[in-house]
Simulated assay, not measured.
Amino acid sequence: MPAVALVLVAGVIGTQLANGGGTFEPLRTADPCVARDVTAQSDGIEGLTERLVLLGIDGAACRLGVSREALTLDLGQGGDPTDAQVDALRAGLEAAVARMEDDGTLPPASELVDEALDSADLNGFLEAAIRALPDSIIDGALKTDDVLVRAIGDLDLRELLGNLDSQDALNDQLQPAIVDAVKDSLADRLRDLI
């Protein structure tokens, strides 16, 4: 039995060495300044904000000259974020909106209206009137990029970043806050439309 075990262990080690196991190098972190394809796991406003947050973090890390991972780890340590971090994240989120607008992945406002109205506190008559509007009128009056930039501007990023207790909490904090801000912004703009 010991001889069989020794032969098996030698076989595993030999296979690992033959396939490059002796020259292990850790993976390099990706350059946050290089555009990457980001796909969302969700649909609607949540999917939109998921992409927005991922691209925004890339933009913030690029502006700060650090990797995405280093920025996420730094913000996840807790404590007050620096002015540079807050400014970089806001600029990164706004740049993400511009990038999605440029590459055609930003949905028209009409695709987000039903979801925003479902969570809005509107009277039934006003909600029915908004839902009856043709998509062309909604898209003509509301530009998704304007709504997103307004929502980003309304976010208290310092407070959001100050409440982080782990690196995973960054997405967990930002996404719901942006979803709510987008829904509120859309609902406000729709009220103004009618």
Rank of each mutant, 00 (worst) to 15 (best):
M1T: 14
A109P: 01
L193E: 11
R36M: 12
G21Y: 00
P107S: 02
E50F: 13
G79M: 03
A120L: 05
Q167M: 08
N163Q: 08
I45P: 01
A61Y: 07
R68A: 05
L186C: 03
G92Y: 12
L27A: 15
A10C: 06
A116K: 06
R28M: 06
I13C: 09
V86P: 02
V179E: 09
P26V: 10
R189H: 09
G21E: 06
G11H: 04
G22I: 01
L122V: 06
L73A: 13
P32F: 04
V38F: 10
N19V: 05
L161P: 02
F125A: 14
C62K: 10
L160Q: 12
A91I: 01
A18I: 00
L75M: 05
Q77L: 06
S166I: 00
S110H: 01
R189G: 01
V86G: 10
D87N: 11
L73D: 15
V113M: 09
D121S: 15
G140D: 07
N171M: 12
L52N: 06
K183Y: 01
K143H: 09
T49H: 07
E115N: 07
P2I: 11
A70P: 03
D172V: 10
A128R: 12
D118H: 08
L117V: 07
P32E: 14
T82Q: 02
A84G: 07
V97E: 07
N171A: 14
V147H: 03
P108N: 07
T49E: 12
T105Y: 04
Q77R: 11
R51A: 02
L54Y: 14
A129H: 15
T82Y: 00
G78E: 09
A177R: 03
L71W: 06
D37N: 11
C33D: 11
D114V: 12
L17M: 11
G59N: 12
T49I: 10
A96Y: 09
F125G: 13
D31G: 10
G59E: 13
E94C: 06
A120H: 05
T72A: 13
A88H: 08
D58G: 03
V38G: 02
A169N: 11
G22Q: 05
P176H: 05
L155Q: 14
D192W: 11
R150P: 00
L157N: 09
D121G: 13
L71A: 08
I178L: 15
A116P: 02
I57T: 12
V182F: 05
L155K: 08
D165K: 12
V34S: 07
A177M: 03
D102V: 11
A132H: 11
A3W: 00
L112A: 04
A187N: 10
S67Q: 12
G76W: 02
G65A: 05
L164C: 11
A98Y: 08
G47H: 09
L71F: 05
G140W: 03
A181L: 02
A18V: 01
L126E: 14
A91R: 12
L161W: 00
P176D: 13
G124R: 04
S136I: 13
A10Q: 09
A128S: 14
P81W: 00
D135V: 08
P2R: 15
L27M: 10
P176A: 13
L160K: 08
T82R: 04
L186I: 15
L157K: 04
P81H: 03
A18E: 01
P108E: 12
D83Y: 00
S110K: 01
L73Q: 15
P81T: 05
K183T: 12
A3D: 14
A96M: 09
R131L: 03
